[in-house]
Computed example of a mutant assay.
Amino acid sequence: MSKKKYRNDTEYLLSNPANAKHLMESIAQDKAGKHIKKTMKELLAMERQPTPR
Rank of each mutant, 00 (worst) to 15 (best):
A18W: 04
K34T: 03
K38P: 00
Q29W: 02
Q49T: 08
K5E: 07
L13S: 06
K31E: 05
G33P: 00
K4N: 15
K3N: 08
L44G: 02
A45T: 08
S15V: 04
L44Y: 04
S26E: 13
R53H: 11
G33K: 02
D9K: 02
K31V: 05
N19T: 07
P17C: 02
T51P: 00
A28S: 15
E25L: 08
K4T: 13
R53E: 12
L13C: 14
N16I: 03
H35A: 12
R48P: 00
K37E: 09
H22G: 01
K41I: 03
I36Y: 05
Y6L: 14
Q29E: 08
L43E: 09
Q29S: 12
L44R: 10
L43V: 13
A18G: 07
Q29R: 12
A20V: 07
L23Y: 00
K31T: 04
L14H: 03
D9R: 05
L13V: 11
H22Q: 12
Q29I: 00
P52F: 01
A18E: 13
K5Q: 11
S15F: 03
L43I: 10
E11A: 09
S26N: 15
Y12H: 10
I36N: 07
I36K: 12
K21M: 09
N8H: 11
L23I: 01
L44C: 07
E47S: 14
Q49I: 05
A20Y: 04
K38M: 12
D30R: 04
E42Y: 02
E47H: 13
K38L: 13
E25Q: 14
A18D: 14
H22P: 00
I36M: 10
K37M: 14
K5H: 09
A32E: 13
T10H: 06
T39P: 00
Q49N: 15
